[in-house]
Design a protein around this nucleic acid. Sequence first.
DNA 1: TATCAACACGAAACCGTTTTCGTAGTATTT
DNA 2: AAATACTACGAAAACGGTTTCGTGTTGATA
Lengths: 339, 339
Amino acid sequence: MKPKITLKDIAKELDVSISTVSKALKNSPEISKDTKDKIKAFAKFYNYRPNNIALSLKNKRTKNIGVVIPDIVHHFFTTVFRGIEKYANQKGYNVIVCISDESFDKEVINMEMLANGSIDGFILSLSAETQLKNDFTHLRELIDQGIPVVLFDRVTSEIDCDKVILNDKEIAFEATQHFINSGASKIALVTTENYFNVSEYRRDGYLSALSKNNIEVDDNLILTLPYNMKNDSLIRDFFKTRKIDAVLCVNEIFAVQCMNIIKELGFEVPDDISIIGFTNGMLSRYSHPSLSTVAQHGDIMGERAAQMLISRMESTEEEGPFKTEIINATLIKRGSTIN
Amino acid sequence: MKPKITLKDIAKELDVSISTVSKALKNSPEISKDTKDKIKAFAKFYNYRPNNIALSLKNKRTKNIGVVIPDIVHHFFTTVFRGIEKYANQKGYNVIVCISDESFDKEVINMEMLANGSIDGFILSLSAETQLKNDFTHLRELIDQGIPVVLFDRVTSEIDCDKVILNDKEIAFEATQHFINSGASKIALVTTENYFNVSEYRRDGYLSALSKNNIEVDDNLILTLPYNMKNDSLIRDFFKTRKIDAVLCVNEIFAVQCMNIIKELGFEVPDDISIIGFTNGMLSRYSHPSLSTVAQHGDIMGERAAQMLISRMESTEEEGPFKTEIINATLIKRGSTIN
DNA sequence: TATCAACACGAAACCGTTTTCGTAGTATTT
DNA sequence: AAATACTACGAAAACGGTTTCGTGTTGATA
């Protein structure tokens, strides 16, 4: 066991001052070549590395960024996270992850914990509870303290900061239009309770595509499901009792659940009923038939978010007004639609 | 914008010394009630929180743990991570995540980066490349420096440290036995190239179940697929050209790929061919029929790993010899097997 | 009245760096 | 020979805390 060596250790051993060692290792011209060589050799031999914590304290920045997401066993969030981690890593940053587990309290506590010096900035996606409560004082305080924050996907207009979002409405429009173009008119929407504002936007896109094509909206064709529950019977009932040509689902779990039940009821996918989901995850790729779906490009969202945050953190002057970047989703047409 | 307040600020404002402020906030009996009240009120008003970095430097521990995993868009690893994060959080630790992306270099660089004071210990699962190279000097050095390390799932016997693994062999045996019990004898194995030692253990379990039941091993019934590739044609060829009753797959992607192709070839699942996979993820749950699978209990693995690490980090004396904890997988019987 | 303990607080060291500034010694200039 | 300019280094402050130890003031004791 050989513990980490410090500047002080080197200084003592080589009988020079700490400052000299520090300067020598940074190749300062103040130090003579002889001394530098001696010190560098010694440092290399003992594998000296400066202590990050001491550096953080000195420089008043940690090179850590905090990522707070509602869930991690979740395809979209992991892809976003991967995008963040990759970019951050390139830029020499490390990433501290907290899972809010859709809880307001966990979100608040974790962020306050990290805000006390552990990180230089935050990237987060609001928890369901936070969106429900509509309470953003924790965010406001952080921003007030000068900590940069980037919101992604689950954002709020209440907070003025950088944001990265998907063009949810437009892509839902496009998906719905795709159904219409292929001859569907009884188009259903399977969505979550509306405290997720992304669901809201998707519904908007769905509705405006219908109205643009002069299709009357039928509330009976909109199924609202609780998030993350066993809802097979609701779905079965839904498809059994009405005539439906196509269904747009706001996530891939709903989409695959619908597909399984549709097939079980004896309908053919996509001939009788077409399906489009959101989230281009494993389920969409490997279901049978494979699911047409909206790819949210989480990697890109994550990368952009990290980029915005880091540029904000590293600029000394105020970097101008906050921006909202919109990531363009793409519709991936696969086996569950007529293309 | 009101920046963070420090002890020094409070001291100056209240015209006492820094030491007095520090002691007052820690409720030291050395300080009079009056002074304490005054200081506490002031601190509360300005929302004083001690700076984590300064504390870390002083205490020589960061309350951060580093988690290094090969991949994050991956059901098993995310469940393990969730287990780690949950336990760590309870214990007041934060988690820094690095994704090695199956690369040796990224694994090494990230760990060395973090080891310079940023974390108190590591939890990691080896990258594919690291396992291939069989080079663990980076781990050895960290352990040498006194940094506790816990390996999980993808471990190595070359390194002496705490470990958490699955009873891969036993559960593969059990799965194979389940096939045999339901009348199968032509039992296939679909596995990865063997630099993943977990695949190796699963193969062992498979083989020993066959031999225990006096079924001759047929190498033609073992399909080795490249990791993470398009391999539909290999699979199709495999099932088209031999008689198979049941197939054990070492992950759920292989399992669902096999199932889709089996169905496409006109066989019935499970009547003609039964399937068991590993990883109880979305694919297994939502495929049709749902897949019987080995639940690896990632949450529990993560929790145990975090537990071992934290207890190691917090014990001052040497905590005795390293342990290897074995998590018992369970076989979840669903629609893809005859139960 | 001298002694002593208790009280309440401050000074300073320390954690490991970086960086500014001061300075002894040597070399150059006039 | 005196003034000046480099060279090469060290002392010390600073980042923001904690903690040990020292000390001035007060009140009680002998």
